[in-house]
Amino acid sequence: MLSYAVYSEAGGVGKTTLSANLAVAHARAGLDVLVIPLDPQDGDLSYLFDVDQDRADSETDTLVHHLVNREKGDFLDLIQTVEHGVDIIPEHNRLEDLGEALRKEQEARSDFGESFPMWTQLQRVLREANVHQQYDVLIVDPPASSGPQLYNALDATRNLVLPLEPSGKGQASVSGLDDLVTNLEEQLEINIGVLAAVPNRVKGTRDQDAIIEEIQSQGFDVPVIFRDRTSLLEGCWRKKCSAFTYIDTHRDRQRDYELETLAQFDQLARHLEAQGNVDAPNPPEPGRLDHERGTKEVQV
């Protein structure tokens, strides 16, 4: 199974949008995909896929219940299916208190001489649910801040996809990519692979080109570079869907540069699948919309 967390220290770099479109790109190729968003903020992946209606329901079973062994039902009952057959565990407001819930459970176990490692609970839940046997791809979308959501995401996936903005604002995070990965490895005492660094909102300036070259000189793989597609991605949030569905359903006409962006999502998904030794059974021509399968490939 291919597993990775889409993560950036900086906010506003398109992390959640990238997670959603990669999930759909994997699913379009015939793979079974599970997405686990762990960001407690509104405007998250559950909102983008329009499955956040129960996030404030105090009576519903949640992932947090399962992480602290207080589940109300089967883990698989948490899953909802969204566009293109992508499965997702919707976020819940209880994620805001995940750290406190984990600490309380750890203290309770300690009173009885039992161990409860707080950062490995997502991995435990997934293993007990045999997720690795039921899915080809696992994507976890943690918040930008350090904490139990991020640490559980990394322990469960052991791989990172790093979206970044090659700008003055993002320069510090770009320069610190090596240190970021090293620090996370040391904190969790695990090895973390970086499957790809993904520049986003690129306008082709000399400064941006220099930053991208710096990323590559650090040894990070940069398989695609996304141009600035603000209109497209804002439309996705407005209509609560991926870019694939937005262009196919909500655009009045096809725009070549937007189809090229879809092709890049597909190409990035194939790259990540190759990294994880996962063979997609039915990969589409890059960027080809579902109702156009079999027509001429979009050139990028």
Rank of each mutant, 00 (worst) to 15 (best):
V131Y: 04
P143W: 12
E114S: 01
W119L: 08
A129W: 01
S110V: 09
L122G: 09
Q133D: 15
A144E: 03
P148E: 13
F116E: 12
L160M: 03
D141T: 10
P143Q: 10
P148Q: 13
K104E: 15
S145T: 13
V131N: 04
H132Y: 11
H132K: 14
A144S: 14
V161S: 05
M118F: 09
V140R: 07
N159T: 08
E107S: 11
A144D: 03
A156D: 01
F116Q: 05
D155M: 14
I139M: 06
L98T: 02
D97W: 03
E107D: 10
L98N: 05
M118T: 11
G147Y: 04
Y151G: 01
A108T: 05
D155E: 09
H132G: 06
D111A: 11
V131D: 08
G147I: 03
Q149W: 05
S146P: 13
D155F: 09
E105T: 12
S110W: 08
V140K: 10
D97Q: 15
Q133N: 12
E96C: 02
T157I: 00
R103G: 14
Y135A: 09
T157L: 08
A108Q: 10
L162M: 11
A144Y: 01
D136C: 08
L160K: 01
D141S: 07
E114I: 00
Q121E: 06
R124Y: 00
V140A: 03
V125E: 01
W119T: 14
H132L: 13
N130C: 06
V140W: 09
Q134N: 11
R109Y: 15
Q123N: 11
L150F: 06
E105I: 07
R124P: 04
N159W: 10
L102V: 10
R158K: 13
I139G: 08
E96R: 12
R109D: 09
K104C: 06
V131T: 14
G113N: 07
R103Q: 14
Q121V: 04
L122H: 07
T157Q: 00
A101S: 09
E128D: 11
Q149M: 12
F112L: 14
Y135C: 11
E105D: 02
S110G: 07
V131Q: 09
V125C: 03
A153M: 01
A101D: 01
Q133L: 15
E105Y: 03
L126F: 01
T157A: 08
